[in-house]
């Protein structure tokens, strides 16, 4: 990897177990994210995905190991890593503009009020909420609230965008539109993104790389899947791409069975958590189509 923005190095998270001893959620986890990359992490509940994201955000600390951002170990939350929360986490007593301006003002403490407002308005317009600046979160639909959350994070112009299942609480139609917009914005600005999702299709549509995590406790990164689809993709066209089903089936297979049996799969084989396999599922060369069965 050439331009490494984030380097997760040997992090572990342990909790005291109820009956004494410790529960290890994950340990010896290594992951590098290059600048401008869109990385999705997929895994079942309880594998510690959110913990990994919170550690990246600085909201949680690893029991062991470090995370390095731009050659500096992180020591808590910082404005260069913006978080889009699953539950949008807007301050309900502030307007849309107030919520975004709060973030802008926190980053640019010396800016004048008008400058903060202009900057905030620019990002509100970017997520398509022009005209709703003075509404309160309670007057917005779920999708609009999440747009404000996205505008707030983007207005910080962070090095890294962290998203914790940002669209999981939305209906399918809204989710689709928001995925399109996040993709458009991140592509145009070259934004580095780390996103957690449950949704295989979301990962295929958005990600350059998909990190697969095995089931917890003692979860591991099993492998990193490189998305074989071209960077320019369209939501309603990708399923026609030759490699689409190869990557989709690979991910589904992993979630259905391999995430559970991965340890057995690796038994006896050499396993290097620092260097997990990078796979690129592509369509197998076309075999001769089977003759259609004639109707009786």
């Amino acid at each position: 990897m050439t331009d490494k923005l984030i380097s997760i190095e040997a992090i572990a998270k342990r909790y005291p177990a109820p009956g004494g001893g410790e529960t290890t959620v994950f340990e010896n986890l290594w992951l590098a994210i290059a600048r401008g990359e869109f990385v999705c992490m997929i895994g079942h509940s309880g594998c510690g995905k959110t913990t990994v994201l919170n550690i990246l955000a600085g909201l949680d600390t690893p029991s062991e190991g470090v995370v390095i951002v731009d050659n500096q170990a992180i020591e808590g939350p910082a404005l260069d890593r913006a978080v889009i929360f699953q539950s949008h986490a807007l301050l309900p007593w502030r307007t849309v503009l107030g919520n975004v301006a709060y973030a802008v003002g926190a980053k640019h403490k010396k800016w004048s009020k008008t400058k903060i407002k202009e900057h905030a308005e620019k990002f509100i317009a970017l997520v398509g909420l022009k005209g709703a600046e003075y509404k309160r979160p309670s007057e917005l639909s779920g999708g609009m609230k999440q747009r404000v959350g996205i505008a707030r994070a983007l207005s910080l112009e962070p090095k890294m965008l962290l998203m914790d299942e940002p669209f999981s609480a939305l209906d399918a139609l809204t989710r689709g539109t928001l995925q399109d917009e996040v993709r458009r914005i991140c592509l145009s600005t070259g934004q580095t993104v780390f996103m957690i999702t449950h949704d295989v299709d979301e990962a295929i549509y958005l990600a350059d790389k998909i990190v697969l995590m095995t089931n917890g406790p003692e979860a591991q990164i099993a492998e990193i899947v490189e998305n074989p689809l071209p960077k320019e993709r369209e939501r309603n066209q990708i399923h026609k791409h030759a490699d689409y089903y190869a990557v989709r089936n690979h991910l589904i297979d992993f979630l259905v069975s391999r995430s559970r049996t991965f340890k057995e799969e690796m038994a006896g084989k050499s396993w290097d958590p620092m260097n997990v396999p990078l796979v690129r599922p592509v369509a197998s060369p076309p075999s001769a189509p089977e003759p259609l069965r004639k109707r009786a």
Binding site: G58, L79, A89
Partner: peptide, 12 residues
């Protein structure tokens, strides 16, 4: 709500 505090924390 913890998430509001987290917002403040991520905004330093």
């Amino acid at each position: 709500r913890k998430e509001w505090l987290n917002v403040a924390r991520t905004l330093e």
